[in-house]
């Protein structure tokens, strides 16, 4: 049932070109059987102001998060959601959204935890589609319910918990994708965003600072492979075979980076630490570092450990 990959030339250099589609490809395949387009935004009302024809909305806050536990929905909840959205286990799902696909990448990452095989991101997201003057509609589709199997979430491969991050310190690289001000500890939230309630500012010891937007071109599309390698391999020092953990504030911007490392650069082992700074910055007895240097671990040589 899977749709053919987009053979766009830029994509062919990526490790997994089949994980991206261009706006041209999507426009040509809208309505194809076996395809569901999912819009996932930060703003819960944005989809309702106009969306790609036939697309369904998946809201990260009310639909992917568990209402009580700070966690994602379970296998049954996910199966129910998929059925409502008209997504079958072998459906090709193309995600797009606002803010350069932060939430779209986040939704794609959550689908990955449930092992949904064919997930793809629209390069450039909602903004590019609109900038090209492509069609939007306010009509909401009424998907036919599917029989989606109950698959338990498997967090091991793509998600890191706080204790795993602690154990990872000194063993593998960490990428902090927040703004430089959040990284240094001058502020605990994004510029122009509200204070999110982290008690301390700074970063996880040894983490390299690579703000998520370094992966994006001016128009919100991903940079080509050579440019991405400059940023993540040469500047941030990642090497082939590294076991990488990315984090941000609540795990949405780092999903974007997770996608880049996993699917575009082809790192086998990449995990997103979704607890991110809102957990780490408030946790008892975990080390942090202030300032713009990565710092070192407590008890492992002199370093600016806070």
């Amino acid at each position: 049932m899977a749709l053919p990959p987009d053979t766009h030339e830029k994509f062919s250099a990526y490790a997994h070109p089949e994980r991206l589609v261009s706006t041209e490809w999507l426009a040509a395949h809208l309505g194809d059987p076996g395809l569901v387009v999912v819009e996932s935004d930060e703003d819960i009302l944005l989809y309702d102001t106009g969306h790609i024809p036939g697309s369904v909305k998946v809201d990260w806050h009310t639909e992917l998060n568990d209402e009580v536990t700070r966690d994602y929905v379970d296998g049954e909840g996910f199966a129910r959601l998929m059925s409502e959205k008209g997504i079958a286990r072998d459906t090709t799902v193309v995600f797009y959204g606002d803010k350069s696909n932060w939430w779209a990448a986040y939704a794609l990452w959550v689908f990955t935890l449930f092992g949904h095989e064919d997930v793809r991101l629209l390069d450039g997201g909602r903004d590019k589609w609109i900038a090209e003057g492509r069609e939007l509609t306010k009509d909401k589709p009424a998907p036919t319910a599917t029989e989606y199997p109950v698959v338990e979430r498997d967090d091991a491969a793509a998600r890191a918990y706080k204790d795993e991050v602690l154990a990872h310190l000194g063993r593998g690289p960490l990428i902090d994708v927040r703004s430089p001000e959040e990284y240094s500890g001058e502020r605990t939230h994004m510029p122009a965003y509200p204070e999110e309630g982290a008690l301390r500012g700074g970063h996880i010891p040894t983490a390299a600072s690579v703000p998520w937007a370094r992966a994006a071109a001016e128009d919100g599309t991903f940079k080509d492979r050579a440019a991405l390698e400059d940023v993540y391999l040469r500047e941030a020092g990642l090497a082939d075979g590294d076991d990488v953990i990315a984090y941000c504030r609540i795990g949405e911007r780092s999903s974007h980076t997770w996608f880049v490392l996993k699917h575009l650069l082809g790192f086998e082992s990449v995990r997103n630490y979704d607890g991110s700074w809102t957990e780490w910055g408030n946790a008892v007895r975990v080390p942090i570092v202030r300032g713009s240097a990565p710092g070192s671990l407590p008890g492992r040589g002199a370093g600016a450990v806070g």
Binding site: D43, I44, L45, L46, D48, T49, D98
Partner: peptide, 9 residues
């Protein structure tokens, strides 16, 4: 901005 409907609301 129009792309911030919740805030506008």
């Amino acid at each position: 901005p129009p792309e911030a409907p919740t805030t506008r609301g």
